[in-house]
Amino acid sequence: MNLLLAPFRGLVDFFQALARIHRIVPWLVAYVFLLPLPEILSATGNDYYIYLTNRILIFILLSVGLNIVKGFCGQVTVGHIGLYAIGAVTSSLLAINYGWPFWAAMPAAVVVTGLAGIIIGLPSVRLEGAYLALATLGLGESVRIMIAVTPALGSSTGIMLIPPPQVGSFVFDDFQKYYYLVMTAAMIGIYLSFSILRSATGRAFMAIREDVIAASVHGINVPANKLLAFVISALYAGAAGALFAHMPPGFIHHNNFTIIEMVTLLLMVVMGGIGHIWGGVIGAIIVYIIYDNTLEFYHIQPLTFGLIMVLLVVFMPQGIGGVIDRYLVTKRFVKLREEKSDGAA
Protein backbone atom coordinates (compact mmCIF):
# COMPACT_ATOMS: atom_id res chain seq x y z
CA MET A 1 0.00 0.00 0.00
CA ASN A 2 2.78 2.35 0.93
CA LEU A 3 4.54 1.63 -2.34
CA LEU A 4 1.41 2.59 -4.29
CA LEU A 5 1.00 5.83 -2.42
CA ALA A 6 4.68 6.78 -2.70
CA PRO A 7 4.38 8.55 -6.07
CA PHE A 8 1.42 10.55 -4.78
CA ARG A 9 3.29 11.51 -1.66
CA GLY A 10 6.23 12.42 -3.82
CA LEU A 11 4.02 14.64 -5.93
CA VAL A 12 2.52 16.31 -2.87
CA ASP A 13 5.99 16.93 -1.45
CA PHE A 14 7.16 18.34 -4.78
CA PHE A 15 4.28 20.81 -4.93
CA GLN A 16 4.68 21.78 -1.33
CA ALA A 17 8.34 22.51 -1.97
CA LEU A 18 7.35 24.71 -4.90
CA ALA A 19 4.83 26.48 -2.70
CA ARG A 20 7.62 27.65 -0.50
CA ILE A 21 8.94 29.76 -3.35
CA HIS A 22 5.60 31.47 -3.75
CA ARG A 23 2.06 30.37 -3.16
CA ILE A 24 1.16 30.55 -6.82
CA VAL A 25 4.14 28.62 -8.21
CA PRO A 26 2.70 25.11 -7.86
CA TRP A 27 -0.41 26.29 -9.64
CA LEU A 28 1.54 27.69 -12.56
CA VAL A 29 3.56 24.52 -12.80
CA ALA A 30 0.45 22.37 -12.69
CA TYR A 31 -1.14 24.57 -15.36
CA VAL A 32 1.81 24.15 -17.66
CA PHE A 33 1.77 20.40 -17.08
CA LEU A 34 -1.91 20.19 -17.95
CA LEU A 35 -1.66 22.22 -21.14
CA PRO A 36 -0.61 19.37 -23.42
CA LEU A 37 -3.44 17.13 -22.16
CA PRO A 38 -5.54 17.38 -25.33
CA GLU A 39 -2.61 16.22 -27.43
CA ILE A 40 -2.13 13.20 -25.20
CA LEU A 41 -5.83 12.40 -25.26
CA SER A 42 -5.92 12.86 -29.00
CA ALA A 43 -3.16 10.32 -29.41
CA THR A 44 -5.55 7.62 -28.23
CA GLY A 45 -7.44 8.29 -31.43
CA ASN A 46 -10.53 9.33 -29.54
CA ASP A 47 -11.14 13.06 -29.54
CA TYR A 48 -14.28 12.56 -27.52
CA TYR A 49 -12.08 12.45 -24.41
CA ILE A 50 -11.22 16.11 -24.95
CA TYR A 51 -14.92 17.01 -25.10
CA LEU A 52 -15.43 14.94 -21.97
CA THR A 53 -12.64 16.84 -20.26
CA ASN A 54 -14.22 20.14 -21.23
CA ARG A 55 -17.57 19.12 -19.78
CA ILE A 56 -15.85 17.93 -16.61
CA LEU A 57 -13.95 21.19 -16.27
CA ILE A 58 -17.17 23.18 -16.44
CA PHE A 59 -18.67 20.94 -13.79
CA ILE A 60 -15.55 21.42 -11.70
CA LEU A 61 -16.16 25.16 -11.79
CA LEU A 62 -19.75 24.62 -10.73
CA SER A 63 -18.92 22.16 -7.98
CA VAL A 64 -16.11 24.22 -6.54
CA GLY A 65 -18.43 27.19 -6.36
CA LEU A 66 -21.19 25.20 -4.76
CA ASN A 67 -18.75 23.72 -2.28
CA ILE A 68 -17.79 27.19 -1.11
CA VAL A 69 -21.28 28.17 -0.06
CA LYS A 70 -22.47 24.71 0.89
CA GLY A 71 -19.46 22.87 2.18
CA PHE A 72 -17.51 25.69 3.69
CA CYS A 73 -20.18 28.08 4.79
CA GLY A 74 -22.68 25.34 5.54
CA GLN A 75 -25.56 27.06 3.79
CA VAL A 76 -28.02 24.61 2.37
CA THR A 77 -28.61 25.87 -1.13
CA VAL A 78 -30.34 23.78 -3.77
CA GLY A 79 -30.98 26.50 -6.29
CA HIS A 80 -27.48 26.70 -7.67
CA ILE A 81 -28.57 25.43 -11.03
CA GLY A 82 -30.69 28.56 -11.37
CA LEU A 83 -27.57 30.69 -11.12
CA TYR A 84 -25.89 28.54 -13.73
CA ALA A 85 -28.90 29.17 -15.97
CA ILE A 86 -28.73 32.92 -15.43
CA GLY A 87 -25.06 32.95 -16.39
CA ALA A 88 -25.69 30.93 -19.52
CA VAL A 89 -28.70 32.90 -20.68
CA THR A 90 -27.21 36.32 -19.96
CA SER A 91 -24.03 35.59 -21.85
CA SER A 92 -25.92 34.12 -24.80
CA LEU A 93 -28.36 36.98 -25.11
CA LEU A 94 -25.65 39.61 -24.88
CA ALA A 95 -23.72 37.85 -27.60
CA ILE A 96 -26.65 37.20 -29.91
CA ASN A 97 -28.82 40.27 -29.45
CA TYR A 98 -26.16 42.89 -28.94
CA GLY A 99 -23.22 41.34 -30.67
CA TRP A 100 -21.00 41.45 -27.63
CA PRO A 101 -17.87 39.35 -28.01
CA PHE A 102 -17.48 36.51 -25.55
CA TRP A 103 -14.77 38.44 -23.70
CA ALA A 104 -17.32 41.10 -22.77
CA ALA A 105 -20.38 38.88 -22.51
CA MET A 106 -18.87 36.43 -20.08
CA PRO A 107 -17.68 38.94 -17.48
CA ALA A 108 -21.04 40.68 -17.79
CA ALA A 109 -22.78 37.37 -17.23
CA VAL A 110 -20.59 36.72 -14.21
CA VAL A 111 -21.50 40.12 -12.75
CA VAL A 112 -25.22 39.65 -13.42
CA THR A 113 -25.13 36.22 -11.84
CA GLY A 114 -23.31 37.69 -8.88
CA LEU A 115 -26.13 40.16 -8.46
CA ALA A 116 -28.59 37.30 -8.71
CA GLY A 117 -26.51 35.60 -6.05
CA ILE A 118 -27.26 38.51 -3.77
CA ILE A 119 -30.96 37.99 -4.38
CA ILE A 120 -30.70 34.29 -3.72
CA GLY A 121 -28.48 34.96 -0.74
CA LEU A 122 -30.82 37.44 0.92
CA PRO A 123 -33.14 34.76 2.28
CA SER A 124 -30.08 32.98 3.68
CA VAL A 125 -29.45 35.85 6.03
CA ARG A 126 -32.68 35.14 7.82
CA LEU A 127 -33.27 31.47 7.18
CA GLU A 128 -31.51 28.30 8.04
CA GLY A 129 -31.47 24.65 7.18
CA ALA A 130 -34.61 23.37 5.57
CA TYR A 131 -36.21 26.78 5.20
CA LEU A 132 -33.24 28.00 3.24
CA ALA A 133 -33.32 24.87 1.13
CA LEU A 134 -36.94 25.50 0.28
CA ALA A 135 -36.37 29.14 -0.57
CA THR A 136 -33.41 28.42 -2.82
CA LEU A 137 -35.24 25.53 -4.45
CA GLY A 138 -38.18 27.79 -5.19
CA LEU A 139 -35.93 30.48 -6.61
CA GLY A 140 -33.95 28.07 -8.75
CA GLU A 141 -37.05 26.51 -10.23
CA SER A 142 -38.66 29.88 -10.81
CA VAL A 143 -35.66 30.89 -12.90
CA ARG A 144 -36.06 27.81 -15.05
CA ILE A 145 -39.79 28.31 -15.52
CA MET A 146 -39.26 31.97 -16.42
CA ILE A 147 -36.85 30.89 -19.12
CA ALA A 148 -39.30 28.26 -20.32
CA VAL A 149 -42.19 30.64 -20.78
CA THR A 150 -40.47 33.80 -21.99
CA PRO A 151 -39.81 33.86 -25.74
CA ALA A 152 -37.06 36.44 -25.33
CA LEU A 153 -35.18 34.06 -23.08
CA GLY A 154 -35.41 31.17 -25.48
CA SER A 155 -38.64 29.60 -24.30
CA SER A 156 -39.11 26.04 -25.48
CA THR A 157 -36.96 26.21 -28.56
CA GLY A 158 -33.91 27.24 -26.61
CA ILE A 159 -31.27 29.73 -27.54
CA MET A 160 -29.24 28.60 -30.52
CA LEU A 161 -26.28 29.68 -32.58
CA ILE A 162 -24.47 31.15 -29.63
CA PRO A 163 -21.18 32.29 -31.14
CA PRO A 164 -17.97 30.72 -29.90
CA PRO A 165 -15.32 32.98 -28.42
CA GLN A 166 -12.78 34.38 -30.81
CA VAL A 167 -9.65 36.46 -30.74
CA GLY A 168 -9.19 38.10 -34.09
CA SER A 169 -9.22 35.22 -36.53
CA PHE A 170 -8.56 32.55 -33.92
CA VAL A 171 -11.94 31.00 -33.12
CA PHE A 172 -12.40 28.65 -30.17
CA ASP A 173 -14.61 26.32 -32.10
CA ASP A 174 -13.18 22.88 -31.59
CA PHE A 175 -12.64 20.73 -28.54
CA GLN A 176 -8.93 21.36 -28.19
CA LYS A 177 -9.12 25.14 -28.47
CA TYR A 178 -12.03 25.28 -26.08
CA TYR A 179 -10.07 23.16 -23.65
CA TYR A 180 -7.48 25.90 -23.20
CA LEU A 181 -10.24 28.33 -22.38
CA VAL A 182 -12.08 26.12 -19.94
CA MET A 183 -8.97 24.74 -18.32
CA THR A 184 -7.66 28.22 -17.64
CA ALA A 185 -10.97 29.24 -16.13
CA ALA A 186 -11.16 26.13 -13.98
CA MET A 187 -7.58 26.54 -12.80
CA ILE A 188 -8.20 30.15 -11.83
CA GLY A 189 -11.40 29.07 -10.12
CA ILE A 190 -9.71 26.36 -8.09
CA TYR A 191 -6.80 28.61 -7.17
CA LEU A 192 -9.16 31.35 -6.04
CA SER A 193 -11.14 28.87 -3.98
CA PHE A 194 -7.97 27.84 -2.22
CA SER A 195 -7.05 31.48 -1.58
CA ILE A 196 -10.47 32.34 -0.26
CA LEU A 197 -10.65 29.33 1.95
CA ARG A 198 -7.24 29.84 3.44
CA SER A 199 -7.90 33.48 4.16
CA ALA A 200 -9.69 35.13 7.04
CA THR A 201 -12.89 35.11 5.01
CA GLY A 202 -12.64 31.38 4.56
CA ARG A 203 -12.15 30.89 8.26
CA ALA A 204 -15.15 33.08 8.89
CA PHE A 205 -17.18 30.85 6.56
CA MET A 206 -16.13 27.75 8.40
CA ALA A 207 -16.85 29.35 11.73
CA ILE A 208 -20.37 30.15 10.57
CA ARG A 209 -20.78 26.59 9.43
CA GLU A 210 -19.71 25.13 12.71
CA ASP A 211 -21.60 27.32 15.13
CA VAL A 212 -23.38 30.44 14.09
CA ILE A 213 -23.80 31.87 17.56
CA ALA A 214 -20.18 31.34 18.52
CA ALA A 215 -19.10 32.95 15.28
CA SER A 216 -21.18 36.05 15.83
CA VAL A 217 -19.99 36.27 19.39
CA HIS A 218 -16.48 36.33 18.01
CA GLY A 219 -17.30 39.42 16.05
CA ILE A 220 -17.84 37.82 12.66
CA ASN A 221 -20.48 39.66 10.69
CA VAL A 222 -22.61 36.61 9.98
CA PRO A 223 -25.15 38.08 7.54
CA ALA A 224 -22.48 39.79 5.48
CA ASN A 225 -20.34 36.69 5.28
CA LYS A 226 -23.25 34.46 4.39
CA LEU A 227 -24.14 36.81 1.59
CA LEU A 228 -20.54 36.92 0.47
CA ALA A 229 -20.43 33.14 0.27
CA PHE A 230 -23.52 33.15 -1.91
CA VAL A 231 -22.15 35.84 -4.17
CA ILE A 232 -18.84 34.08 -4.62
CA SER A 233 -20.54 30.83 -5.52
CA ALA A 234 -22.79 32.75 -7.89
CA LEU A 235 -19.77 34.21 -9.65
CA TYR A 236 -18.48 30.68 -10.23
CA ALA A 237 -21.85 29.56 -11.52
CA GLY A 238 -22.05 32.54 -13.85
CA ALA A 239 -18.64 31.78 -15.31
CA ALA A 240 -19.53 28.11 -15.74
CA GLY A 241 -22.82 29.06 -17.37
CA ALA A 242 -21.20 31.38 -19.87
CA LEU A 243 -18.56 28.79 -20.75
CA PHE A 244 -21.27 26.18 -21.20
CA ALA A 245 -23.36 28.43 -23.42
CA HIS A 246 -20.56 29.38 -25.78
CA MET A 247 -19.22 25.88 -26.10
CA PRO A 248 -19.87 24.64 -29.63
CA PRO A 249 -22.55 24.00 -30.87
CA GLY A 250 -23.76 26.90 -28.77
CA PHE A 251 -27.24 25.80 -27.76
CA ILE A 252 -28.98 26.07 -24.43
CA HIS A 253 -32.48 25.05 -23.42
CA HIS A 254 -34.41 25.39 -20.21
CA ASN A 255 -34.30 21.67 -19.52
CA ASN A 256 -30.53 21.84 -19.16
CA PHE A 257 -31.26 23.38 -15.76
CA THR A 258 -33.77 21.10 -14.06
CA ILE A 259 -33.86 19.58 -10.61
CA ILE A 260 -32.19 16.47 -11.99
CA GLU A 261 -29.15 18.54 -12.94
CA MET A 262 -29.21 20.10 -9.48
CA VAL A 263 -29.26 16.67 -7.88
CA THR A 264 -26.34 15.58 -10.06
CA LEU A 265 -24.41 18.64 -8.94
CA LEU A 266 -25.25 17.82 -5.32
CA LEU A 267 -24.00 14.31 -5.87
CA MET A 268 -20.70 15.65 -7.19
CA VAL A 269 -20.15 17.80 -4.13
CA VAL A 270 -21.23 15.09 -1.73
CA MET A 271 -19.09 12.45 -3.34
CA GLY A 272 -16.05 14.64 -3.52
CA GLY A 273 -16.49 15.65 0.06
CA ILE A 274 -18.60 18.52 1.30
CA GLY A 275 -16.28 21.01 2.88
CA HIS A 276 -13.16 19.35 1.60
CA ILE A 277 -10.99 21.73 -0.30
CA TRP A 278 -10.67 19.38 -3.27
CA GLY A 279 -14.24 18.16 -2.88
CA GLY A 280 -15.64 19.89 -5.91
CA VAL A 281 -12.85 18.77 -8.21
CA ILE A 282 -12.81 15.15 -7.12
CA GLY A 283 -16.58 14.85 -7.19
CA ALA A 284 -17.03 16.39 -10.62
CA ILE A 285 -14.39 14.17 -12.19
CA ILE A 286 -15.55 10.92 -10.63
CA VAL A 287 -19.27 11.42 -11.10
CA TYR A 288 -19.02 12.50 -14.71
CA ILE A 289 -16.66 9.69 -15.63
CA ILE A 290 -18.91 7.11 -14.01
CA TYR A 291 -21.88 8.69 -15.75
CA ASP A 292 -20.19 8.62 -19.14
CA ASN A 293 -19.07 5.03 -18.83
CA THR A 294 -22.44 3.70 -17.80
CA LEU A 295 -24.46 5.38 -20.53
CA GLU A 296 -25.66 2.10 -22.00
CA PHE A 297 -27.36 1.34 -18.73
CA TYR A 298 -29.65 4.34 -19.02
CA HIS A 299 -32.43 2.18 -17.67
CA ILE A 300 -31.00 1.99 -14.20
CA GLN A 301 -28.50 4.82 -14.28
CA PRO A 302 -30.57 7.43 -12.43
CA LEU A 303 -31.61 4.85 -9.85
CA THR A 304 -27.99 3.91 -9.20
CA PHE A 305 -26.94 7.53 -8.87
CA GLY A 306 -29.76 8.24 -6.44
CA LEU A 307 -28.89 5.19 -4.39
CA ILE A 308 -25.22 6.16 -4.32
CA MET A 309 -26.20 9.57 -3.06
CA VAL A 310 -28.36 8.18 -0.27
CA LEU A 311 -25.73 5.64 0.77
CA LEU A 312 -22.96 8.24 0.65
CA VAL A 313 -24.82 10.60 2.92
CA VAL A 314 -25.69 7.86 5.37
CA PHE A 315 -22.46 5.91 5.44
CA MET A 316 -19.76 8.16 4.09
CA PRO A 317 -20.88 11.72 4.74
CA GLN A 318 -17.41 13.15 4.34
CA GLY A 319 -17.18 11.86 0.81
CA ILE A 320 -14.02 10.77 -0.92
CA GLY A 321 -12.23 13.84 0.32
CA GLY A 322 -13.00 12.64 3.82
CA VAL A 323 -11.54 9.24 3.07
CA ILE A 324 -8.38 10.84 1.72
CA ASP A 325 -8.13 12.98 4.80
CA ARG A 326 -8.67 10.09 7.11
CA TYR A 327 -6.40 7.52 5.56
CA LEU A 328 -3.71 9.49 3.86
CA VAL A 329 -3.35 12.80 5.55
CA THR A 330 -4.22 11.87 9.13
CA LYS A 331 -2.25 8.66 9.13
CA ARG A 332 0.74 10.47 7.74
CA PHE A 333 0.36 13.18 10.31
CA VAL A 334 0.22 10.64 13.07
CA LYS A 335 3.24 8.83 11.63
CA LEU A 336 5.21 12.08 11.41
CA ARG A 337 4.30 12.94 14.98
CA GLU A 338 5.50 9.55 16.11
CA GLU A 339 8.75 9.94 14.24
CA LYS A 340 9.23 13.34 15.76
CA SER A 341 8.54 12.17 19.29
CA ASP A 342 10.79 9.16 18.72
CA GLY A 343 13.52 11.52 17.63
CA ALA A 344 12.97 13.72 20.65
CA ALA A 345 12.94 10.75 22.94
Binding site: Y48, H253, N256, D292, L295
Partner: peptide
Protein backbone atom coordinates in the same frame (compact mmCIF):
# COMPACT_ATOMS: atom_id res chain seq x y z
CA UNK B 1 -33.54 12.20 -22.08
CA UNK B 2 -34.78 14.92 -24.43
CA UNK B 3 -32.01 17.20 -23.15
CA UNK B 4 -29.85 19.12 -25.56
CA UNK B 5 -26.60 18.87 -23.61
CA UNK B 6 -26.95 15.11 -23.28
CA UNK B 7 -27.87 14.80 -26.93
CA UNK B 8 -24.80 16.76 -27.99
CA UNK B 9 -22.61 14.69 -25.67
CA UNK B 10 -24.10 11.51 -27.13
CA UNK B 11 -23.53 12.75 -30.66
CA UNK B 12 -19.91 13.62 -29.90
CA UNK B 13 -19.36 10.30 -28.22
CA UNK B 14 -20.86 8.37 -31.10
CA UNK B 15 -18.97 10.34 -33.73
CA UNK B 16 -15.55 10.50 -32.11
CA UNK B 17 -15.40 7.48 -29.87
Amino acid sequence: ECKSDKGVANANKLIFQ
